[in-house]
Design a protein around this nucleic acid. Structure first.
Length: 262
DNA sequence: CTAGATGTTAAGGT
DNA sequence: CACCTTAACATCTA
């Protein structure tokens, strides 16, 4: 589920496994997700270098090389990274395989090929060019209010719009709206100020708790809706059967008792 | 067999 | 012009 908490978890994973080790080999399995660069050039930029630093903005992960290039990873709907020694443990759909001098590998996996692998000299320019909004964890309340309080779109659509706030996707927006008690189809501008403030606090709280849980729903608090996002799912607060509705062409789960239009 | 699954974006509309 | 919506992308699974 590569939204902000997942990507932050990947970032920390890479920090603890893959920094400051010389890269001795690079394999790219598909050119489909390699943007604006040939396989050969891409390899040349990584081989004999080391990763020295990571940075996350929204759902994008940046990994800095000691030649001052940033490797940019985007996970699409199905991506993850894995560090391992035994090649038999290489996950299916490995699109990028990096071998370090200690004979360990770091793989970037992406079943559905909606992910992206890129290089950039300037991560801030990259973020600007992509028109990404402020990272959800860097947001303060007055910016949040200014960014959204006039918008006509449905609140779920506003929350998941990466050009406004970066990092919140289909899954975590459901969690935020559930705890705030708002119907996902509510027009953003109609939300009362008190609810806006609660929503802002919930964004922070939920993302932080989820990161602490390593974005694994099995570790989530009992009152989270995410583990119940499935057919026949029940509200963790009142046991009411959850409803689904399409917003932005994506399935949205909500509790008809706890989430209202105002 | 068909529908649907965590994301982004081009193209169209208001 | 700023904003909003929808369809399409590739692959696997229920």
């Amino acid at each position: 589920m590569p939204e902000l908490p997942d990507v932050e978890t990947f970032k920390r994973y890479i920090d603890s496994t893959s920094l400051n080790k010389k890269i001795v080999d690079v394999k790219v399995d598909t050119t489909k997700i390699l943007e604006n660069i040939t396989k050969k050039k891409f390899k040349n930029f990584l081989i004999d270098k080391k990763f020295v630093e990571t940075y996350r903005h929204g759902k994008y992960l940046f990994i800095k090389n000691n030649n001052s290039k940033w490797l940019v990873l985007h996970f699409g709907m199905t991506g993850f990274v894995k560090y391992f020694k035994d090649l038999e443990k290489k996950p299916d759909h490995t699109r990028l395989l990096i071998k370090f001098e200690n004979d360990y590998y770091l793989s970037f996996n992406n079943q559905r090929l909606f992910g992206k692998i890129e290089l950039t000299d300037d991560k801030d320019k990259y973020i600007k060019d992509k028109k990404l909004g402020v990272d959800a964890l860097d947001l303060d309340y007055s910016t949040f209010k200014k960014l959204i309080d006039y918008r006509k779109a449905m609140i779920k659509s506003t929350l998941t719009n990466q050009n406004i706030i970066a990092g919140i996707g289909n899954i975590y927006s459901d969690e935020i709206l559930f705890h705030t008690g708002i119907d996902p189809k509510t027009k953003t501008a109609k939300i009362r100020i008190k609810k806006l403030k609660t929503m802002f606090e919930n964004i922070k709280k939920i993302l932080k708790i989820s990161i602490e849980a390593k974005a694994n729903p099995n570790n989530f608090p009992k009152n989270f809706i995410i583990p119940h996002r499935k057919k026949e799912g029940k509200c963790p607060k009142c046991n009411e059967k959850l409803k689904t509705v399409k917003v932005n062409g994506r399935t949205t789960y909500f509790c008809p008792i706890h989430q209202k239009k105002k």
